[in-house]
């Protein structure tokens, strides 16, 4: 399962998001001019991309975009490039970008990944304007410690294209960094036996340490066969010698029972 097709949650169109922003004539004029310059000469994006925050602002627009992220996404989508040249330009923006710029690059990736599901065949890496070519950026963000970048890396692009093992590790990293799992893409289609096993083991470690378990892992654990052995294990933990450990097991067991299986009632995507 190297490519799972586009997750359903493609980000909102950044232009539409910006249009709903209170009109700021100089900012819009700057952005239009910047798009024209990038259309004319793609390399111009190098000195325009960092300036977008100063020129356009940084207020939050919606759940997905801030003004600077949306403006930078507009600049990226204006690049008249595809394939390697597009990936090269993105790699330069990411390499020389500050954290906000890197976040904008990652958040814009799904907008360049216009592969229809039907095309996701035997060599999906070749499809779309970008293919798998921006995966190194996703991986770099996932190696770091910045939770906002880790979250952005697990948007629809990364979630659709990371190999299974890397996707699972990334989900586990989110749990460690306390990134709520409902903020990352692809979990509904990519959660599997192995991920559920890893999360159950993680929960067991927490219980053994007398600590609480983040509640958002339960729906994943519940949806897979590991549930039975894990429930037995937690039940056994409720008889542990250490009181902290017993209490943590009781709390975990209660939370597990209360959790709704993720796959039982799939939610409608907005």
């Amino acid at each position: 399962m190297a490519f799972t097709g586009l997750p359903r949650s493609t980000p909102p169109d950044p232009r539409t998001a910006l249009a709903g922003h209170p009109p700021d004539a100089p900012a819009h004029a700057w952005l239009d001019e910047a798009v024209a310059r990038i259309t004319d000469r793609p390399a111009a994006i190098g000195a325009l991309f960092p300036a977008a925050r100063r020129r356009c602002g940084h207020a939050r627009l919606d759940e997905h975009w801030t003004v600077d992220e949306a403006a930078r996404a507009v600049l990226i989508t204006a690049l008249p490039l595809e394939g390697e040249p597009l990936a090269g330009e993105l790699a330069g923006l990411f390499r020389h970008g500050d954290p906000a710029e890197q976040r904008a690059v990652l958040k814009a990736l799904p907008l360049l990944d216009d592969t229809p599901d039907a095309l996701a065949g035997e060599h999906p890496g070749d499809h779309g304007r970008l293919g798998d070519r921006a995966l190194p950026l996703v991986r770099e963000a996932l190696r770091g410690n910045d939770s906002s970048l880790i979250e952005a890396a697990l948007g629809p692009y990364g979630a659709a294209r990371l190999p299974d093992g890397e996707y699972r590790q990334a989900v586990l990293k989110c749990v460690f960094y306390e990134i709520p799992l409902d903020r990352i893409a692809g979990l509904d289609v990519r959660a599997d036996d192995e991920l559920a096993r890893m999360l159950a083991d993680f929960a067991h470690e927490r219980v053994a340490a007398g600590r609480d378990v983040p509640p958002d892992i339960w729906p994943v654990v519940r949806a897979f066969p590991v549930l039975d052995t894990f429930t037995d294990l937690l039940t056994a933990e409720t008889h542990a010698a250490a009181p902290d450990r017993r209490e943590a097991a009781l709390r975990a067991l209660k939370a597990l029972r209360e959790a709704t299986a993720l796959t039982a009632e799939p939610e409608e995507e907005a």
């Binding site: 190098g46 000195a47 960092p50 925050r53 020389h96």
Partner: peptide
């Protein structure tokens, strides 16, 4: 060659 990128920063 890469300086313009950095000179553009806030």
């Amino acid at each position: 060659d890469e300086l313009p990128r950095y000179l553009a920063k806030d």
